[in-house]
Computed example of a mutant assay.
Amino acid sequence: MKTLVTGGAGFIGSWIRRELLARGHQVLVLDHQDRRQQLADGEEFFLGDVRDHVAVTEAAAHVDGIIHLAAVLGTQETIHNPRPSAETNILGSLNVFEAAAQYNLPTVYAGVGNHAMRLIGTGCYTITKSAAEDLARMYNLYRDGGRITIVRPVNAYGPGQSVAAPYGTSKVRKIAPSFICRALTGADIEVYGDGTQISDCVYVEDVAHAFVTALEHTTVNEPTARPVEVGPLVSRTVNDVARLVAEQAAIITGREPVGIKHLPMRPGEVPNAVVSSDTQTLQQIGITAADFVSLEDGIRRTVDYYANHWLPSYLAA
């Protein structure tokens, strides 16, 4: 099976590509940045933007299925500049769904783990990603060729995730690299709010496994009746994540664990929010969160990765 992965050069996309190749599939990466030098055997690259319906339709003509990841991310970033996320996340998804319907392709769409927060106020990222879910449901119900399964991962983390300022060049701050880079350099971990909010994290390898399994399921079955929510069996607070990072960084550096510094919440963040997943929905594609990497093990693997691959170059700069 040859699979189109939109946004395939990104963090989650790179892990999904590995999973596809490991299962014997071929991969066509569609991305607006030329990353063909990163390709492995069994992969091809299509330079294009999901906002371009001609490019998307052309790419879809050469595959047997689609995993649609391409999106503009960020909470604060999409509040202050909402147009790019609206154009990419809604119009781009519409282009993918239309091309998939034209060629009758099984498709997996990456929904958003905090989808429920659109009802209580959040960034344009969540709003637009949730709007695309509504489009997916429309295609499944009313369009010939509508074969779209929605997969909603919570906060994916793991080796290779980009690092935001002041430690890297990414424009979007993600919880794991933000905490880890501070802890490894001896700075207190910054937590927005009191840290008691639930923001579940799931190891990226498990996310990739769920996406590819969902695509294989949708290839031979109807799309799942409910979105497949990918997350841990047991919810943890942001403070829990911060403490685990501090403890693992201390083991590596030989220093005392760094502290946790609480900052005011930013626009789009909701006090006492709960971002978690209904792991029972995984049964629709025949997997269980009981097999997922634990938060303790995942944090250990991820801190080790940044200690070995990020920290030396950062200290040398």
Score class of each variant (00 low, 15 high):
residue 264 P to H: 10
residue 295 L to R: 08
residue 1 M to H: 07
residue 294 S to E: 14
residue 260 I to M: 11
residue 291 D to P: 04
residue 148 I to Y: 09
residue 167 Y to V: 06
residue 108 V to P: 09
residue 247 E to A: 14
residue 276 S to I: 07
residue 252 I to R: 15
residue 66 I to K: 10
residue 107 T to E: 04
residue 300 R to A: 15
residue 137 R to L: 08
residue 116 A to N: 11
residue 177 P to M: 06
residue 260 I to N: 05
residue 258 V to N: 07
residue 187 A to D: 15
residue 8 G to E: 06
residue 125 Y to L: 12
residue 75 T to A: 02
residue 201 C to K: 14
residue 236 R to L: 13
residue 161 Q to F: 03
residue 225 A to M: 12
residue 205 E to A: 15
residue 100 A to V: 07
residue 227 P to D: 07
residue 254 G to P: 00
residue 249 A to S: 08
residue 32 H to E: 10
residue 9 A to N: 13
residue 249 A to E: 06
residue 243 R to K: 15
residue 123 G to T: 15
residue 141 L to S: 14
residue 107 T to C: 11
residue 127 I to Q: 03
residue 209 H to A: 15
residue 14 S to L: 07
residue 46 F to L: 02
residue 96 V to T: 14
residue 61 A to K: 05
residue 59 A to V: 05
residue 216 E to W: 00
residue 182 R to W: 07
residue 315 L to F: 07
residue 23 R to E: 13
residue 53 H to G: 07
residue 219 T to W: 08
residue 293 V to G: 14
residue 259 G to W: 10
residue 40 A to S: 04
residue 261 K to L: 15
residue 41 D to T: 14
residue 121 G to Q: 06
residue 154 V to Y: 03
residue 315 L to S: 11
residue 37 Q to S: 03
residue 125 Y to N: 14
residue 263 L to A: 05
residue 232 P to W: 13
residue 226 R to G: 09
residue 237 T to C: 01
residue 92 G to R: 08
residue 5 V to W: 00
residue 301 R to V: 11
residue 209 H to N: 15
residue 247 E to Q: 14
residue 79 I to D: 03
residue 85 S to M: 02
residue 127 I to Y: 12
residue 116 A to Q: 07
residue 68 H to S: 05
residue 191 V to R: 11
residue 255 R to P: 13
residue 121 G to S: 06
residue 123 G to E: 12
residue 286 G to D: 05
residue 252 I to Q: 10
residue 301 R to N: 13
residue 267 P to N: 02
residue 199 S to R: 08
residue 176 A to H: 10
residue 206 D to F: 13
residue 186 G to M: 12
residue 156 A to P: 05
residue 276 S to P: 02
residue 240 D to F: 08
residue 223 P to A: 15
residue 68 H to G: 11
residue 105 L to K: 03
residue 26 Q to E: 14
residue 135 L to P: 04
residue 237 T to A: 00
residue 80 H to A: 09
residue 237 T to I: 05
residue 253 T to A: 02
residue 306 Y to E: 00
residue 22 A to K: 04
residue 11 F to P: 02
residue 45 F to V: 00
residue 146 G to W: 03
residue 121 G to F: 06
residue 274 V to K: 00
residue 261 K to G: 10
residue 64 D to H: 04
residue 22 A to W: 04
residue 180 I to N: 09
residue 83 R to A: 09
residue 294 S to V: 11
residue 135 L to T: 14
residue 134 D to V: 15
residue 42 G to T: 06
residue 145 G to W: 10
residue 281 T to M: 03
residue 97 F to G: 01
residue 284 Q to P: 03
residue 75 T to Q: 05
residue 196 T to Y: 09
residue 128 T to N: 05
residue 257 P to D: 12
residue 132 A to Y: 09
residue 227 P to K: 12
residue 189 I to W: 02
residue 28 L to Y: 03
residue 142 Y to C: 01
residue 76 Q to G: 10
residue 223 P to V: 14
residue 5 V to C: 05
